[in-house]
Nucleic acid binder design. Structure first.
Lengths: 153, 153
DNA sequence: AGTTAACTGTTAAGATATATACTATTTATA
DNA sequence: TATAAATAGTATATATCTTAACAGTTAACT
């Protein structure tokens, strides 16, 4: 089903450029919603899981990341990280630790966080692979290349 | 610049499927932010402008749309439309009107809303065209086709 | 007619996002 | 060294989004 049919749109947006932008928006929106549904079964949100993923894969020797680093990696405003980490601290998924540079906090996963991540991550990986099996490997590469151009233009 | 470089990611997400999903997310996120920046110059948010766009292009003879219709077209929960329309009513961009079926509200643009839309829409169109000129028409068609598959899978 | 089911909009609680302004700290520079 | 600039995190106000529960209206069905 085309995007227009799906949304019940009857006319307008008939310029191809608009359609491309709309497609990016709505596809991302749907993927995000499906991912969030998945994560909520484990009592985390998609954004919170994103933090855990970054702490797992992106911190040097598991040494943690600062809020500013998380902010950059997630394309999210610094201010938003504060409350996000507040909630994750409350849920005992991460801790704030002081560093040499006293402007920084170092965010690390707790044991509980690591355990949850270890359980959920492989399942999520399967979900992504399944979802993307809708298109061939070649198309995936094309998609990545095209979006890269759009994004960095 | 590749997505990984841009975000300062050092490893992980190295499976192509993950990259494709990440690319969709982040491209959409960037486009959304850029659009929102643009609209805020005119004291509307991107979501509010989306409502106006639908009221302009999608309502029968300018007869307005119900909140449920807007909800479906925007892939947004009904509950969210309530507060969205509240704010737009307050800003005098739209009005709620009663209908024969007393379950429905009919949302219409005010004169002020129409005037603003007439001013902003062509400028936004230019922005989209410019943004999408990063890729060729053929690539735009490919993009649309590929995302359509991913979305409806 | 009367009951049930479906639909619309609202409300409430909570999460995520923005911008702006502020404090504290560190770095750069005159 | 002293001042200015940059950086990190927080506080606040506002917007958007989710789910769940609820009330009123309409449609379907016995």
């Amino acid at each position: 089903m085309s995007l227009k049919e799906e949304l019940g749109l009857k006319r307008g947006f008939n310029v191809i450029e608009h359609e491309a932008v709309l497609n990016i928006y709505f596809t991302a929106s749907k993927l995000k919603k499906r991912a969030d549904e998945f994560f909520r079964k484990f009592n985390v949100t998609d954004v919170q899981f994103n933090v855990m993923m970054l702490l797992h894969y992106q911190s040097e020797d598991g040494g943690g990341l600062s809020q500013a680093q998380l902010s950059k990696m997630m394309l999210v405003n610094r201010a938003n990280i504060t409350s996000l980490i507040d909630r994750m601290e409350k849920a005992e998924l991460v801790t704030r630790n002081s560093s040499d540079d006293r402007r920084y906090n170092i965010i690390k996963m707790t044991g509980k966080g690591k355990k949850l991540f270890g359980k959920v991550e492989p399942l999520y990986g399967k979900l992504v692979v399944e979802k993307m099996s809708a298109i061939k490997k070649g198309e995936q590469k094309q998609l990545i290349a095209i979006l890269e151009k759009v994004r960095s233009y």
